[in-house]
C-alpha cells in the first residue's frame, strides 16, 4: 500500500501523540495512583443486614481517619446525614440495596457508581468546614431527582 510522504508525516505525528498521551495516562495511573474507583469486593445485596452494612454509618479508625459505610437505595442514602470534623479523611464504602445508583459530591473528586452486589470505595479529605451535598447522578427511577444526602464537616 502506497503512503504519500505527507500522510506518513501526519500519521507518525498523530500516532506518536497518541502513544505519548497513553503513556502519560499509564504513568499517572500506575506510578502515581490516579485510578478510578474500582473496588473488587462483592456483597449479597438481598441480605445486607447480615453483612458489614448491617449498621451503616461512620466509625473512627484513627485520629483523623473515618470510615463511612453507606447504603444507597431508591431514593436516598442510609444514613441521610453524616458528620466529621474538618481535616478528616473519610474512606467511603458504598453499596446499593436495590438498583444502580451513584455517589457524587459536587466540587470534589468524589464520584463513583454504586452497583448492587458490589462495594465501591473512594476516599476524600475534607479541608473546609461546611455542609456538603451528595447527589445520585445515575437514573434510578421516578424519584431519582430527589436522591441526596448531606455530609456535615464541623469546624
Amino acid at each position: 500500500m502506497h503512503l504519500h510522504k505527507y500522510e506518513k508525516i501526519w500519521m507518525t505525528f498523530g500516532i506518536g501523540s497518541l502513544v505519548l498521551f497513553l503513556a502519560v495516562l499509564g504513568v499517572s495511573a500506575f506510578a502515581f495512583g490516579a485510578q478510578p474507583p474500582s473496588h473488587m469486593h462483592s456483597v449479597d445485596s438481598q441480605n445486607l443486614e447480615e453483612s458489614v452494612f448491617s449498621a451503616p454509618g461512620v466509625e473512627q479508625i484513627d485520629e483523623t481517619t473515618y470510615r463511612a459505610r453507606l447504603v444507597a437505595m431508591a431514593f436516598g442514602y442510609d444514613p441521610g446525614t453524616i458528620e466529621v470534623p474538618v481535616g478528616s479523611t473519610v474512606i467511603f464504602e458504598i453499596t446499593s440495596s436495590d438498583v444502580v445508583h451513584s455517589f457524587a459530591i459536587p466540587g470534589t473528586n468524589v464520584n463513583l457508581m454504586v452497583t448492587p452486589g458490589h462495594v465501591n470505595m473512594t476516599e476524600h479529605t475534607f479541608t473546609e468546614p461546611g455542609e456538603y451535598l451528595v447527589l445520585c447522578n445515575e437514573y434510578c427511577g421516578t424519584g431519582h431527582q430527589h436522591m441526596q444526602m448531606k455530609i456535615e464537616v464541623t469546624p
Partner: peptide
C-alpha cells in the same frame, strides 16, 4: 467509575478505545 472491574482492564480498554484515533486521522487526511 464502577466496582467489580479491575484498574488493569479499564486501562487496557482505554488504550484500545483511543486506537480509534488512527482510522480517524486516516479519514481526515
Amino acid at each position: 467509575m464502577e466496582s467489580g472491574i479491575s484498574v488493569f482492564w479499564k486501562y487496557v480498554q482505554t488504550i484500545l478505545t483511543f486506537v480509534v484515533v488512527v482510522p480517524s486521522l486516516l479519514t481526515a487526511f
